[in-house]
Design a protein around this nucleic acid. Structure first.
Lengths: 188, 188
DNA sequence: GTCTATATGCGGATAGAC
DNA sequence: GTCTATCCGCATATAGAC
């Protein structure tokens, strides 16, 4: 690994943790520099702006999240379980080393009412990916209207994440809600 | 109405709209002043800081939202309808003159990772109010575990709001999700 | 390629006149 | 009580040395 890549990794690690636990606007770029052990000029050589750094962090995180989700899907015993394991992936991601206060993507969407193109692109891609995958899994589970069930489950998953802003409860009723939704969708 | 109250109303109106459509941190206090047609010194005579203004706006909005919700509950035909009319109240509030980009309270919680006491208090009060009222309505609808159903519905309502960060769709699957949850909870 | 030092602009909040 | 003018600090980003 070149030293350029190592520097980028340090910056992304620091930024990811600070941005998504304290907030992006609330994190001065100096805090990222200090944690990464890197100077200002070095950061701006790697990323053209704070916004570009945000976009890069989201990009990497999106890929990591998809891997975690894929791993859970691969372990699922049935199509219905596969459909619900988005919640397992969320739990796993939260308790892992990349935990965020709630959700990195929703948080970014909340902080940028009118996001710059780089950021808008990764946010849209994330929502699109959710929809596409959930729709596919819903179809495989036999839902008569896979897209509708996918939208319902995306709402439930987003609701679980938003609830982290209200309470620090470790358990969530999300799975129960999702089970009711799936049962209703698959009922004859 | 004294002129002091009129000034406060103008400030609250301006701040409410700007804070919750553009974001709190993204709204400079000067933008509030300009829209309210008031000078800086006048604002700081009424509210000790930007944070105090945020707290005051949330206070007023909480009261307004409870009124809207109460009106919907009063119109409900059955206990089960009353339980679900939180979604009607959300729709009504959104299309009314106090629309926000998603949710004023969740947005504030997202922007302040460690909110000052004034703001923390009103945020906690809002979540508490939701839980208490939904629990009461769930009991009246005959749910065997009213608090559990209330938590599930709060998650669905929060999910609908969070989805506004992902899409500008005007229709939402929230009601369908809630109906499935209620049906599952009330089933024998 | 990385550091130190700094330019530049804007944020919230206040002083003092009227 | 409200305005104009201003203070002060901090944020992002850059220049220039090594």
């Amino acid at each position: 690994m070149t030293s350029r890549q190592a520097t980028r990794t340090k910056l992304l690690d620091a930024a990811e943790d600070l941005f998504f636990t304290r907030g992006i606007a609330a994190t001065p770029i100096d805090a990222v520099l200090e944690r990464a052990g890197v100077s200002s000029a070095t950061l701006y050589r790697a990323y053209s702006s704070k916004e570009a750094l945000v976009a890069a962090v989201l990009d990497r995180r999106h890929a990591a999240w998809l891997s975690a989700w894929d791993a859970e899907i691969a372990d699922a015993g049935s199509p219905t379980e596969a459909l619900l394991c988005i919640f397992d992936a969320n739990d796993a991601f939260r308790s892992g080393p990349r935990g965020a206060r709630w959700c990195a993507f929703l948080n970014t969407a909340a902080e940028f009412a009118d996001p710059p193109p780089q950021i808008a692109e990764v946010l849209e891609r994330e929502t699109r990916t959710y929809r596409e995958r959930l729709t596919r899994l819903a179809g495989e589970a036999g839902a008569p209207d896979p897209a509708a069930l996918a939208d319902q489950l995306l709402l439930v998953a987003s609701g679980e994440l938003a609830m982290r802003l209200r309470t620090d409860a470790t358990t969530s009723p999300a799975r129960a809600v999702a089970a009711a939704v799936v049962a209703a969708a698959l009922a004859p």
